[in-house]
Design a binder for these strands. Structure first.
Lengths: 340, 340
DNA sequence: GTATAATAGTTAAACGCTTAACTACTATTT
DNA sequence: AAATAGTAGTTAAGCGTTTAACTATTATAC
């Protein structure tokens, strides 16, 4: 690979001149610029990024961090859309993405990840930060690497989906339809801040409707999977056969729940209303189409990346909370018999 | 950030000693090793990767390249699963992933990508290489960067899904059920080698069944999307109302086709058989569940990454072709009236 | 006609690491 | 006793950039 030195020799100037011409420093004659550029052209010179990184401290590399807390992280629709949004921004600005998926434990992210952060390899970081277990951003903060959190992690710059507003809208839709015998299918909330927020929304609306959230039938041993949605629906309906609605913490569990209740001979929404959260592709295709919350995940990625570039630009961007959108489809309807 | 020099000073040895102890070079006393390690510990030393890269030429960075040929690349299930497989391998070996999504045009991938390749930033590359338009790997080959292609691109080291075998199995399933009036929903094959292979398989089986593939009703202006599947099914059935089966080049188009024919008052599979290719999540959930081909995409990623690490190890791995699996579900059945 | 400013380019240090080449001492072989 | 091999560590060059500090020339001001 040609180096600056070779270009300089060919152009008959010094190394520094080549470097400066390439970075558009003023005070060079057109003649010199031309000589340099044609030498660059002829040799096909491209800068060695490692050398540039070492010398300038800038790598043009953005770390995109998705903590690996469960299997199949890249099949998580949230992750997909966020990645999509970040990629678009980075590509437009000539930055590359370093994808990191640290394993998390109670004493923090794994060694490989910590090494990466300290390595001076990353100009900035966008991290999904929703796990109370441990933050992937605190090491970055310590090193003063510009970083944006997506989620509820404790970080000055963040982008969040408004889970409280989303779950509130979802639950209001359910209570508004007249449901009072409501089951909740969810996961252990200690795993996820955003799940905690969703629970909070459900709780508040339930209380407003005169229901005691704590005493609502609940299955909270789900793991986001379709299978766990099936298990949860089976468990709940066995114990409480008068439920008229199941509120699920995500779409996959809702789709599992629908399949399960159909298997049990119930019709959705005629016999029972089922709603989810996320608005994944399958939810629109499924029959009945699922009533759910669209959290506009691509926007999360976009805004996070924009915020990061603002930080790199020494600006002072405001954190963002992105509102969600209720998608009412076929899986929700008023209860057959109101038990108001 | 602490450097080798600071560690060396603290440990009372030379920089070289620290470097060598850390890389497990032989010939040091336990005493020296201990002194070095405790200094490293105390200072929290972590190597500067840029410096290491410049000096040694090794970055521990693997480029994962997905050419951006259509919107929503990360929502492509193939991409997701491949990424998942690669990530698992890389993480296990302490390598990081640099995700690159070059824009492709007839005169090759974009400048940003070429710069990346030449930058000495990547120890190796795994690239999705299925686009005849231009190869993302030829620049890598020129620079002698170890690389593995996933797909049919012209590259010595590759991992492929056996599209020929898959499409053959799919078409044999259809003809075996007795279908003869078969419509094809597909995309422009000049865009994708793997699509060409799938067409070839359909062609061969059609001929064996005494059908002339070229004259089979065809809609080839699809773009993989659900919407284009709907359009295609509508167009085809309007012109040929006696079709008993629709073979779709991917699942999303198949799901669109099913929705369209249902909207037209037809039942699947009673009135018409519809099959897809990919086995995405929605295909199992959809009602009727879709008969399709599982190309075992996670395996593609796994094998590709393993092959790359073998190359980095100076081994001489064999290229791999991964067989697919036919998943017979509810959307296919014998034709109502055989027109044999 | 100087002093000052603007223009045009060079020199050389620095970034933090790896590693070949070297020194120095001890143990073993012949 | 000399030669060889093994052990333990150091010195210093080199990787390819960036950039502060410097030199040299030309234009402008007073």
């Amino acid at each position: 690979m040609p180096t600056l030195a070779e270009v300089a020799e060919k152009a008959g100037v010094s190394i520094a001149t080549v470097s400066k011409v390439l970075s558009n420093t003023p005070y060079f004659t057109e003649e010199t610029r031309r000589k340099v550029m044609s030498a660059v052209e002829e040799l096909g010179y491209l800068p060695n990024l490692a050398a540039r990184a070492l010398s300038s401290g800038k790598t043009h590399l953005i770390g995109v961090v998705f903590p690996y807390v469960y299997e199949g992280i890249f099949t998580d629709p949230l992750v997909q859309y966020i990645l999509e949004g970040i990629e678009a921004e980075c590509n437009a600005r000539g930055y590359n993405i370093l994808l990191s998926t640290p394993r998390l434990s109670a004493d923090g992210p794994d060694e490989n990840y910590r090494r990466l952060l300290q390595s001076s390899y990353l100009d900035g970081i966008v991290a999904l930060d929703n796990v109370p277990l441990s933050s992937v951003l605190s090491p970055a903060l310590r090193k003063n690497t510009p970083a944006v959190a997506i989620g509820y992690g404790d970080h000055p710059n963040y982008v969040r989906s408004d889970d409280l507003q989303g779950s509130t809208a979802l639950m209001e839709h359910i209570t508004g339809l007249g449901h009072r015998r409501i089951g909740i299918l969810t996961v252990d909330e200690s795993l996820h801040y955003s799940i905690q927020m969703r629970h909070l929304g459900l709780d508040q609306v339930a209380e407003e409707a005169g229901l005691n959230y704590v005493h609502l039938p609940k299955y909270d041993r789900g793991d986001f999977s379709i299978a766990s949605g099936m298990r949860g629906a089976a468990a709940l309906l066995e114990q409480y056969d008068d439920l008229t609605a199941l509120v699920c913490i995500n779409d996959r569990m809702a789709l599992g729940a629908i399949q399960q209740v159909q298997k049990m001979g119930l019709k959705v929404p005629d016999d029972i209303t089922i709603v989810g959260y996320d608005d994944i592709l399958s939810s629109q295709l499924f029959s009945p189409a699922l009533t759910t919350i669209d959290q506009r995940a691509p926007e999360l990625g976009h805004q996070a990346a924009q915020m990061l570039f603002a930080l790199l630009n020494n600006e002072n961007p405001d954190s963002v909370v992105i509102p969600t959108q209720l998608r009412v489809r076929e899986s929700s309807a008023p209860p057959k018999v109101s038990r108001q």
